[in-house]
Design a protein around this nucleic acid. Sequence first.
DNA 1: TCGCTATTTCGCTAATTAACGAAACATACC
DNA 2: GGTATGTTTCGTTAATTAGCGAAATAGCGA
Lengths: 95, 95
Amino acid sequence: MIDECKALSNETRLRILNWLKDPEAHFPCGDTAELGVCAGLIQQKTGASASTVSAHLAVLQRAGFLQATRRGQWIYYRRDEARIRAFAEDLHHTL
Amino acid sequence: MIDECKALSNETRLRILNWLKDPEAHFPCGDTAELGVCAGLIQQKTGASASTVSAHLAVLQRAGFLQATRRGQWIYYRRDEARIRAFAEDLHHTL
DNA sequence: TCGCTATTTCGCTAATTAACGAAACATACC
DNA sequence: GGTATGTTTCGTTAATTAGCGAAATAGCGA
């Protein structure tokens, strides 16, 4: 629970999660098939450096909110909706 | 939302919130009338220093999770259930 | 293998958080 | 006012987080 709360304690990471809720709308010129959105597009949209965004994505992945799939030199990220929902409900019950 | 998530990103603070869910059960030898639990009892139960616990309680108060009432030299803390519930639901909708 | 692109990891700096003991402040009593 | 207790604030140290640029790694095509 603490890792998840820490993952959500950052504006950029909240934004990324929100964008990935509706990839087609937020990444119109990207191939956002069921694999998700590639790291490069996410990086561009945040306006931060590639290394910073990579670290953010890693935090979100470690918290269980994102799943990653490598396809060649591209890595696609998508939300793990089940984990996100489970966390939200768990938190609701814990508080 | 970020302040709230940060407030929850600490084991001791989570514990305090949980204890204050049911004050009578967790603080049996304390006067836990509707004012809540006095800071000294909370401090003792955490096992941390008074200054540390004071800082934790301040974080929880700033996040809106706790309300404080001073009665003479004692300060009593209680949960703000409405704010806690609102945050949990807001988070649920945001994620 | 080389050159290129995509991405992560590393090294660094700066800011924030966590914890403590001491000092300061708030309240009460004699 | 002096003393005592409860609590917060301050000053300090240590750990963690945030962000960057450079270096390293991963994958691809010629």
